[in-house]
Design a protein around this nucleic acid. Sequence first.
DNA 1: CACTGGATCCTT
DNA 2: AGGATCCAGTGA
Length: 198
Amino acid sequence: MDATDPFETARRLLGAHLIGRAVTVRLTEVEAYAGERDPGSHAFRGRTARNEVMFGPAGHLYCYFSYGMHTCCNYVCGPDGEAAAVLLRAGEVIDGIGLARERRHTTVDRSLARGPACLTQALGIELSDKGVDLHATGSAVRVEWQAALPSDVIRTGPRVGVSGAGGDGDTYPWRFWVDGDPTVSAYRPAKPRRRPRT
DNA sequence: CACTGGATCCTT
DNA sequence: AGGATCCAGTGA
Protein backbone atom coordinates (compact mmCIF):
# COMPACT_ATOMS: atom_id res chain seq x y z
CA MET A 1 0.00 0.00 0.00
CA ASP A 2 0.95 3.64 -0.31
CA ALA A 3 2.72 4.58 2.92
CA THR A 4 3.31 8.23 2.16
CA ASP A 5 1.39 9.76 5.03
CA PRO A 6 2.47 8.68 8.54
CA PHE A 7 -0.97 9.33 10.02
CA GLU A 8 -2.83 7.24 7.48
CA THR A 9 -0.12 4.60 7.71
CA ALA A 10 -0.45 4.55 11.51
CA ARG A 11 -4.18 3.79 11.18
CA ARG A 12 -3.53 1.06 8.64
CA LEU A 13 -0.86 -0.52 10.81
CA LEU A 14 -3.39 -1.12 13.57
CA GLY A 15 -4.53 -4.70 13.12
CA ALA A 16 -1.68 -5.49 10.73
CA HIS A 17 0.63 -8.41 11.50
CA LEU A 18 4.26 -7.83 12.44
CA ILE A 19 6.28 -10.99 12.00
CA GLY A 20 9.61 -11.28 13.81
CA ARG A 21 11.83 -14.25 14.61
CA ALA A 22 9.27 -17.05 15.08
CA VAL A 23 6.83 -14.71 16.86
CA THR A 24 3.97 -12.72 15.30
CA VAL A 25 1.95 -9.89 16.79
CA ARG A 26 -1.19 -8.10 15.74
CA LEU A 27 -0.44 -4.40 16.22
CA THR A 28 -2.71 -2.58 18.67
CA GLU A 29 -0.88 0.68 19.38
CA VAL A 30 1.34 2.98 17.27
CA GLU A 31 2.53 6.58 17.13
CA ALA A 32 3.12 8.83 14.10
CA TYR A 33 6.29 10.89 13.76
CA ALA A 34 6.25 13.56 11.09
CA GLY A 35 9.95 13.96 10.42
CA GLU A 36 12.08 17.07 10.30
CA ARG A 37 9.27 19.41 11.30
CA ASP A 38 8.30 17.27 14.30
CA PRO A 39 10.17 18.18 17.52
CA GLY A 40 9.55 14.71 18.90
CA SER A 41 11.18 12.96 15.96
CA HIS A 42 14.74 11.70 15.80
CA ALA A 43 14.89 13.43 12.42
CA PHE A 44 14.11 16.87 13.89
CA ARG A 45 17.72 18.00 13.64
CA GLY A 46 18.22 16.57 10.19
CA ARG A 47 19.90 13.55 8.71
CA THR A 48 22.49 11.62 10.74
CA ALA A 49 24.08 8.19 10.60
CA ARG A 50 21.56 6.89 13.10
CA ASN A 51 18.36 8.14 11.48
CA GLU A 52 19.40 7.75 7.86
CA VAL A 53 16.92 4.92 7.33
CA MET A 54 14.05 7.28 8.15
CA PHE A 55 14.89 9.33 5.08
CA GLY A 56 14.81 6.32 2.79
CA PRO A 57 11.89 4.63 1.04
CA ALA A 58 8.76 3.57 2.94
CA GLY A 59 8.25 0.08 4.28
CA HIS A 60 11.65 -0.35 5.91
CA LEU A 61 12.47 -0.86 9.58
CA TYR A 62 14.04 1.90 11.65
CA CYS A 63 15.21 0.71 15.06
CA TYR A 64 17.11 2.56 17.70
CA PHE A 65 18.70 1.84 21.06
CA SER A 66 17.42 3.70 24.08
CA TYR A 67 18.06 4.12 27.80
CA GLY A 68 21.05 1.84 27.77
CA MET A 69 19.03 -1.36 27.49
CA HIS A 70 16.08 -1.12 25.14
CA THR A 71 15.52 -1.33 21.41
CA CYS A 72 12.41 0.12 19.75
CA CYS A 73 11.33 -0.02 16.14
CA ASN A 74 9.46 2.04 13.56
CA TYR A 75 7.77 1.56 10.21
CA VAL A 76 9.37 4.10 7.86
CA CYS A 77 6.95 6.14 5.75
CA GLY A 78 7.53 7.96 2.49
CA PRO A 79 8.01 9.73 0.30
CA ASP A 80 11.67 8.88 -0.25
CA GLY A 81 13.68 11.79 1.12
CA GLU A 82 11.24 12.67 3.90
CA ALA A 83 11.82 11.30 7.39
CA ALA A 84 8.36 10.22 8.50
CA ALA A 85 7.86 7.07 10.55
CA VAL A 86 5.45 5.19 12.81
CA LEU A 87 6.66 3.90 16.18
CA LEU A 88 5.33 0.39 16.85
CA ARG A 89 4.29 0.52 20.50
CA ALA A 90 2.27 -2.59 21.34
CA GLY A 91 0.58 -5.68 19.99
CA GLU A 92 -1.12 -8.94 20.77
CA VAL A 93 1.00 -12.05 20.30
CA ILE A 94 -0.85 -14.33 17.90
CA ASP A 95 1.92 -16.81 17.07
CA GLY A 96 4.98 -18.14 18.89
CA ILE A 97 3.67 -17.21 22.31
CA GLY A 98 5.89 -19.71 24.12
CA LEU A 99 9.04 -18.16 22.69
CA ALA A 100 7.69 -14.70 23.45
CA ARG A 101 7.21 -15.67 27.10
CA GLU A 102 10.81 -16.90 27.27
CA ARG A 103 12.21 -13.75 25.74
CA ARG A 104 10.20 -11.50 28.01
CA HIS A 105 10.57 -13.62 31.15
CA THR A 106 6.91 -13.27 31.97
CA THR A 107 3.75 -15.30 31.73
CA VAL A 108 1.43 -12.30 31.71
CA ASP A 109 0.35 -12.66 28.12
CA ARG A 110 -1.17 -9.22 27.72
CA SER A 111 2.19 -7.72 28.68
CA LEU A 112 4.33 -9.70 26.25
CA ALA A 113 4.38 -6.94 23.65
CA ARG A 114 2.99 -4.08 25.70
CA GLY A 115 5.30 -1.11 25.18
CA PRO A 116 7.72 -0.50 22.29
CA ALA A 117 10.78 -2.10 23.91
CA CYS A 118 8.73 -5.11 25.03
CA LEU A 119 7.30 -5.57 21.56
CA THR A 120 10.76 -5.49 20.04
CA GLN A 121 12.13 -7.96 22.56
CA ALA A 122 9.20 -10.37 22.22
CA LEU A 123 9.74 -10.51 18.47
CA GLY A 124 13.50 -11.02 18.73
CA ILE A 125 14.26 -7.83 16.78
CA GLU A 126 17.80 -6.46 17.15
CA LEU A 127 19.33 -3.08 16.53
CA SER A 128 21.13 -4.64 13.58
CA ASP A 129 17.78 -5.23 11.88
CA LYS A 130 17.64 -1.51 11.13
CA GLY A 131 16.95 -0.97 7.46
CA VAL A 132 15.38 -4.32 6.57
CA ASP A 133 12.62 -4.31 3.97
CA LEU A 134 9.41 -5.15 5.81
CA HIS A 135 7.68 -6.29 2.63
CA ALA A 136 10.38 -8.56 1.21
CA THR A 137 9.70 -12.28 1.61
CA GLY A 138 13.20 -13.12 2.86
CA SER A 139 13.38 -10.50 5.61
CA ALA A 140 13.75 -11.48 9.26
CA VAL A 141 11.09 -8.92 10.12
CA ARG A 142 8.00 -8.42 7.99
CA VAL A 143 4.64 -6.64 7.95
CA GLU A 144 1.52 -8.24 6.52
CA TRP A 145 -1.35 -5.84 5.93
CA GLN A 146 -4.80 -6.88 7.10
CA ALA A 147 -8.16 -5.32 6.39
CA ALA A 148 -8.32 -1.72 7.61
CA LEU A 149 -10.01 -1.41 10.97
CA PRO A 150 -13.22 0.63 11.07
CA SER A 151 -12.47 4.12 12.28
CA ASP A 152 -14.80 3.82 15.26
CA VAL A 153 -12.56 1.26 16.97
CA ILE A 154 -9.46 3.47 16.60
CA ARG A 155 -8.79 5.90 19.39
CA THR A 156 -6.25 8.74 19.39
CA GLY A 157 -4.39 10.71 22.03
CA PRO A 158 -1.11 12.41 22.88
CA ARG A 159 2.11 10.50 22.34
CA VAL A 160 3.87 8.82 25.23
CA GLY A 161 7.15 10.10 26.62
CA VAL A 162 7.60 12.86 24.06
CA SER A 163 8.20 16.31 25.36
CA GLY A 164 7.51 18.78 22.58
CA ALA A 165 9.89 21.63 21.88
CA GLY A 166 7.13 24.19 21.99
CA GLY A 167 6.53 23.91 25.71
CA ASP A 168 5.54 21.34 28.27
CA GLY A 169 4.37 18.13 26.76
CA ASP A 170 3.17 16.93 23.43
CA THR A 171 -0.27 18.23 22.54
CA TYR A 172 -0.71 16.51 19.18
CA PRO A 173 -3.03 13.47 19.14
CA TRP A 174 -0.57 11.38 17.18
CA ARG A 175 -0.95 8.17 19.15
CA PHE A 176 -3.36 5.58 17.76
CA TRP A 177 -4.65 2.47 19.48
CA VAL A 178 -7.38 -0.17 19.26
CA ASP A 179 -10.23 0.80 21.58
CA GLY A 180 -10.46 -1.40 24.64
CA ASP A 181 -7.62 -3.72 23.70
CA PRO A 182 -5.87 -5.06 26.84
CA THR A 183 -2.46 -5.10 25.16
CA VAL A 184 -2.34 -1.34 24.72
CA SER A 185 0.37 0.16 26.94
CA ALA A 186 -0.48 2.38 29.89
CA TYR A 187 -0.24 6.08 29.17
CA ARG A 188 2.58 7.88 30.94
CA PRO A 189 3.03 11.63 30.68
CA ALA A 190 6.35 12.84 29.32
CA LYS A 191 9.05 13.41 31.89
CA PRO A 192 9.96 17.07 32.11
CA ARG A 193 13.52 17.79 31.01
CA ARG A 194 14.29 19.76 34.10
CA ARG A 195 12.74 19.37 37.44
CA PRO A 196 9.99 21.98 37.60
CA ARG A 197 10.41 24.39 40.46
CA THR A 198 7.37 24.10 42.62
C1' DC B 1 37.66 13.71 23.35
C1' DA B 2 34.23 14.29 27.29
C1' DC B 3 29.73 15.20 28.46
C1' DT B 4 24.77 14.61 28.53
C1' DG B 5 20.29 12.94 27.75
C1' DG B 6 17.04 9.62 25.92
C1' DA B 7 10.17 7.85 21.38
C1' DT B 8 11.68 2.73 28.35
C1' DC B 9 10.83 -0.76 31.73
C1' DC B 10 10.68 -2.63 36.20
C1' DT B 11 10.81 -2.47 41.13
C1' DT B 12 10.07 0.02 45.36
C1' DA C 1 10.07 7.92 42.41
C1' DG C 2 14.39 6.09 40.87
C1' DG C 3 17.87 3.15 38.75
C1' DA C 4 19.74 0.40 35.03
C1' DT C 5 23.25 1.27 31.29
C1' DC C 6 24.96 2.54 26.39
C1' DC C 7 24.43 4.82 22.06
C1' DA C 8 24.52 9.11 19.55
C1' DG C 9 24.40 13.99 19.23
C1' DT C 10 26.68 18.10 20.56
C1' DG C 11 30.39 21.15 21.51
C1' DA C 12 35.33 22.12 22.51
